[in-house]
Amino acid sequence: MTSLEIVQQYYSAFNNKDWDGMLALLHPDVRHEPNQGDPRVGIEKFTEFLGHMDESYEETLTDMVFFTETSGRRVAVEFVVNGVYKKGEEGLPEANGQRYVLPAAAFLEVTEGKISRVTTYYNLPLWIKLVS
């Protein structure tokens, strides 16, 4: 399977809420670089993050466009996040089921047939405005 196919499968699993399917595509030492906060390293930390996200947000990604570079190791994807804010977090607005539509992007790297890096970017001030 190519890096592009691995990343496409990863996002298909995300949209299907197939967390085990997502985790199966990650390298044990995956580096997750979120839009805000410190990077997380390792599948255990990513699994914790995924559980937290599932508890707080209901999201589906649409309008996905994938890009690859010549070595085939790195893949970028642009998408629209269609979400529901289910549970509030410290320092963020209170959650009461607000819906949001937010453009975002991610950059992924594949090592030995597994996703070894996920870096995500979105406009946090816009998201706060959308749910306030």
Rank of each mutant, 00 (worst) to 15 (best):
T2M: 03
T2V: 01
S3T: 02
L4Y: 03
L4F: 06
L4S: 02
L4V: 00
E5Q: 12
I6G: 05
Q9E: 14
Q9H: 08
Q9W: 04
Y10V: 04
Y11I: 07
Y11M: 13
F14I: 01
F14M: 09
F14H: 12
F14A: 09
N15V: 00
N15S: 02
N16S: 14
K17C: 00
W19D: 07
W19I: 10
D20P: 02
G21V: 04
A24T: 04
P28T: 04
D29W: 09
D29I: 07
N35W: 01
N35D: 09
N35Y: 06
G37H: 05
G37R: 05
D38H: 11
R40D: 06
V41A: 01
V41K: 10
G42N: 12
I43M: 00
I43A: 06
E44V: 05
F46S: 04
F46D: 09
F46E: 12
T47L: 10
E48Q: 15
F49N: 13
L50R: 10
L50N: 07
L50H: 02
G51N: 15
D54E: 10
D54W: 02
D54R: 11
S56P: 06
S56G: 12
Y57H: 08
Y57C: 09
E58L: 15
E58T: 02
E58K: 14
E59T: 08
E59P: 00
E59L: 08
L61N: 03
L61F: 06
T62V: 09
D63S: 13
D63Y: 01
F66T: 08
F66I: 14
F67I: 08
F67W: 08
E69I: 02
S71N: 14
V75K: 08
V75T: 09
A76S: 07
A76L: 07
A76H: 03
V77M: 15
E78K: 11
F79R: 14
V80K: 15
V80S: 13
N82M: 11
G83W: 02
G83M: 11
G83Y: 03
G83H: 10
V84E: 10
V84L: 14
Y85D: 13
K87N: 09
E89C: 06
E89L: 15
E90Q: 11
E90A: 13
L92K: 15
P93R: 03
E94P: 00
A95N: 09
A95D: 10
N96C: 07
N96L: 09
G97E: 12
G97V: 04
Q98L: 04
R99I: 04
Y100W: 09
L102D: 07
L102Q: 14
P103F: 05
A105R: 10
A105P: 00
A106M: 08
F107M: 12
F107Q: 04
F107L: 14
E109L: 05
E109K: 11
E109H: 12
T111G: 06
T111S: 14
E112V: 02
G113Q: 11
K114N: 05
I115D: 06
S116L: 07
T119R: 15
T119F: 03
T120R: 14
Y122E: 07
N123Y: 04
P125C: 08
W127C: 11
W127Y: 10
W127D: 02
I128E: 03
